[in-house]
Write a protein that binds this DNA or RNA. Structure first.
Lengths: 330, 330
DNA sequence: TTGTATGCGTTATCAT
DNA sequence: ATGATAACGCATACAA
């Protein structure tokens, strides 16, 4: 691997001049610039990222924190981020927090050592209070998740609106007893709270009661979906519709419901969230709320690049719209 | 961030001694060693990876190349690798080749600049001939994919055996007309060829003919699965069973088949490959061939670590077994 | 067993 | 506009 000295020698110039060309400094004669570029090309030279990092420079690597890569929503999100980053010649370091506070912090430390220029957090485990200090070492963008600090660049979806649209759809289908599953506690904050708000808003508008036993908290997986159905089977007064927090939960619920002879949507309507590929493969195909994942990824990378270019850029909060995809499960 | 000099000062010793402690050199008095360790702890010191890389050292980062992270098989594989790596205090740089030769090569270049200590390739786009030179800069482990070079450390599954078991299962169910979908050309090499061999072997043993029009090549996605069914609908002589190259293809096929009023498994048996979470959610639940993904990941990391410890370690080829999961689709 | 000095590849500072 | 040189943090050859 040739280094900057090799290029300098090859071009008959100094290392400093070569470095200036690499970094687009002004005050360089066209003549020498071309000489250097020629030499770089001939030698197949690429700057050594470690050396640049050591000097305290940006190094074309961004970090992405996801809770679990096997969750299709995050796999797609990572994909979108990776594509956008690659288009801008950035590399992506992917990290699973596994919903562990310690893991999350350990990854954020990469900012300190300039291993990554910036971080996109698609989930947040620690209090923002504990995360914020790390942003002194490089920009942190919240993607999908968000926090109460208006100074944090954020790309998110209007969860309230999405949940509202979903529940309203169920109400329009004639349902009055609508179950609801959420990822956190019902009284939580952030993304889940917004969804909860949308759920409640729609109920209220239709003058429907909120039955606490129809609210299932801390649900995430396929198995959780099955469990919801089992819980429902034990109820005297069952919901006629279930609004699940993700397509996975919906899929599990659908599977278990059918196993109990419950017809969908006649006996129980099921509404998903995400529009993952499995949604249309289920039987019946799943009505769900599509998240614009690609936009989410692109905008997040965009935000990060903005900060790389201008360290004191203004923080933005991008809000993206949902889309209700009506299929056969409602 | 404290550096090695800070630690040295704090411990009242030289940088060299601190460095020796960090790198577990022999010939250090217990006394000083503890002094240094104490100082490191007190200052919260962590070696700067960029500096180590620059110095030409291993840096606890491994790279993983996948074709597409949104493919659940690879998402689970990456997850397994990441968990195993984390347990050994290694970080994982994930890279999507998008099945592009250029992207693959661009990532392998990270080996040259010591950005990663070694690479796990879960797919191979370029000729091995073009990839091999990079292994001079760090070990490359083939995982799931493999090549004809016995000197390459490899962790793979016995594809022939897996395919054989699957087809045999279909034959035992009474099928004589068995369709087959594969990811590459039927005459290809590597992983897919092995599977093809297993398919043919099982047919041969049962004295069944191989009907070329029942072989669907270059199939990967849900849509490909649907397309297979559409092709089959146009045949006068249709297969009564379909052995698909992945659960995704199987899912697509099942969906499309049902749309055409084909009953599963009565009219058409469908056998998957992978045992992804969706397999048991399909209706009917999918009979499939389980790949021991976690083992695949763990063993790959193990191989890599072996080479890190001993640069001239012997190349191994680990073969892992499949498992036939019988559900209701066959 | 420990310390000193040098270099890894870059970029920034200071000259010119 | 260009060049010489120091510094980033670390690990090693060499000296002691």
């Amino acid at each position: 691997m040739p280094n900057i000295s090799d290029v300098a020698k090859h071009a008959g110039l100094s290392k400093a001049t070569v470095s200036r060309v690499i970094n687009n400094h002004p005050y360089i004669s066209k003549e020498k610039r071309e000489l250097v570029q020629q030499a770089m090309k001939e030698l197949g030279y690429h700057p050594n990222p470690s050396a640049r990092r050591l000097r305290g420079h940006l190094t074309s690597t961004i970090g992405v924190i996801v809770p679990r890569i096997v969750n299709p929503f995050f796999a797609y999100l990572v994909n979108a981020i990776e594509q956008a980053a690659y288009a801008n010649e950035y590399q992506v370091l992917i990290f699973q927090s596994d919903e562990s506070r310690e893991k999350e912090i350990s990854f954020l430390n990469l900012l300190k050592t300039k291993q990554v220029d910036g971080v996109i957090m698609t989930s947040i485990e620690n209090d923002w209070h504990d995360i914020k200090p790390y942003s002194a070492y490089g920009p942190i963008v919240c993607c999908n998740e968000y926090v109460q600090d208006p100074l944090v660049p954020t790309v998110k979806l209007n969860q309230t609106e999405g949940a509202y649209a979903g529940v309203k759809h169920l109400i329009e289908r004639g349902h009055k007893k609508i179950g609801y599953s959420t990822g956190a506690l019902f009284a939580g904050e952030g993304r889940d709270k917004d969804r909860n708000d949308g759920y409640q808003k729609a109920l209220k508008e239709a003058d429907l009661d909120l039955n606490p036993s129809w609210i299932f908290v801390n649900k995430h997986t396929i198995d959780d979906g099955k469990q919801i159905i089992r819980q429902m089977m034990n109820m005297n007064d069952r919901p006629t519709a279930l609004f699940s927090g993700s397509d996975e939960i919906a899929a599990g619920a659908m599977s278990e419901a059918k196993a109990h002879g419950i017809r969908i949507p006649e006996d129980l309507a099921i509404l998903g969230f995400d529009d993952q590929p499995i949604a249309e493969l289920l039987d019946p195909p799943l009505t769900t709320i599509r998240q614009p994942i690609d936009d989410l990824g692109e905008k997040s990378v965009e935000q990060l690049l903005r900060f790389f270019k201008d360290k004191s850029a203004q923080s933005e909060c991008v809000d993206l719209p949902f889309e209700l995809i009506v299929r056969k499960s409602t």
